[in-house]
């Protein structure tokens, strides 16, 4: 117990406390923290009216919700389609989860090549088909990084949904077939409601992760053009390094941390609520049977 607590203190709480402390100070990287001036909540207040920060926050929120929405849609859809015993299905499933196993930097590079204005495969196809080129990483930068992220992370939703699907009670689905449910009706009335607990946790996990996205976007666009793909993680890094405003960067990190904390608490709250409910049901049943 004690060694674990000490390591936790050093590895986790020290940097955290350091960052929170730093966020209340006007802090240039050339200064030591003890030499900085206390400015209260000034960093936080300043950020709220900082258009670049608001823009960056908007980009992050847009990115996270859009990717998670499509990843859920495609991932769950694929799971519903592939939940059957066909020959070669296990190979297919392995292929499906490959994108998730590739290092994010590699994914970013790969998509950057594919999106390349003249040599990228997408624009070459478009020109071969006689269509206009698309300015993927320029005009449509956010859409492009969203597509890349969907490609990489849909498999995560897919394997978790598939596992959820395959653990559904078979007989309930058979009962639904006998009751006259079509394939669609089975999905809507039986499969999705029964998968919901897993799907909610999966979605929250994915959302938490999407807020922290960095590498793929860094490699693909470096946040540009302009601020169009500058997600919070990038903004924080730039604030700290280019603008040399460590206090502001720390405050920004804390905003992000708060956001993530809300999501994490939501997830824990949900699982705890479910466990409590299961517990209550078990007690109730025992009382009745005993």
């Amino acid at each position: 117990m004690a060694p674990a607590a000490i390591i936790m203190l050093i590895a986790l709480f020290y940097p955290l406390v350091y960052m929170v402390y730093g966020s209340f100070r006007d802090w240039d990287p050339s200064q030591r923290l003890s030499e900085t001036d206390f400015v209260g909540l000034a960093n936080y207040v300043k950020l709220l009216s900082d258009e670049a920060f608001i823009e960056s926050l908007t980009v992050t929120l847009t990115f996270a919700f859009v990717v998670v929405f499509f990843e859920m849609l495609i991932g769950v859809g694929l799971a519903l389609l592939l939940d059957r015993n066909l020959r070669g299905m296990s190979l297919l499933r392995t292929l499906f989860i490959l994108p998730m196993m590739i290092a994010p930097v590699v994914v970013g590079l790969m998509w950057r090549f594919m999106y390349h204005q003249t040599d990228g495969i997408f624009n070459r196809w478009l020109t071969d088909l006689g269509l206009d080129r698309v300015d993927w990483l320029g005009q449509h930068a956010l859409t492009s990084v969203i597509i890349a992220d969907i490609w990489q992370w849909t498999p995560f939703i897919f394997i978790l949904s598939l596992a959820a699907l395959q653990s559904l009670p078979r007989s309930a689905l058979e009962a639904a077939r006998i009751d006259g449910a079509t394939g669609w009706q089975q999905i809507i009335h039986i499969k999705l409601p029964l998968m919901a607990p897993v799907l909610i946790v999966t979605m929250l996990l994915r959302l938490i992760d999407a807020f922290k996205v960095l590498e793929v976007i860094l490699v693909m666009t470096e946040g540009g053009p302009g601020l169009s793909t500058e997600i919070l993680a990038l903004r924080i890094a730039r604030t700290a390094q280019e603008f040399r405003e460590l206090g502001e960067a720390a405050a920004m990190s804390n905003y992000l941390l708060l956001l993530l904390m809300v999501l994490t608490l939501a997830m824990f709250g949900f699982t705890r609520w479910q466990e409590a409910r299961a517990q209550k049901l078990k007690m109730l049943q025992r009382e009745e049977e005993g």
């Binding site: 007989s171 449910a181 009335h189």
Partner: peptide
């Protein structure tokens, strides 16, 4: 569903997310 039959399963196969009334009325609702 085209055979006009009803079935009772060994493990009951009730729909866990529906209450008793909705379980019983599922076929009629469909």
């Amino acid at each position: 569903k085209e055979r006009d039959l009803a079935m009772v399963f060994q493990d009951y196969a009730l729909y866990p997310h529906m209450n008793v009334a909705r379980n019983m009325s599922f076929a009629l609702r469909l």
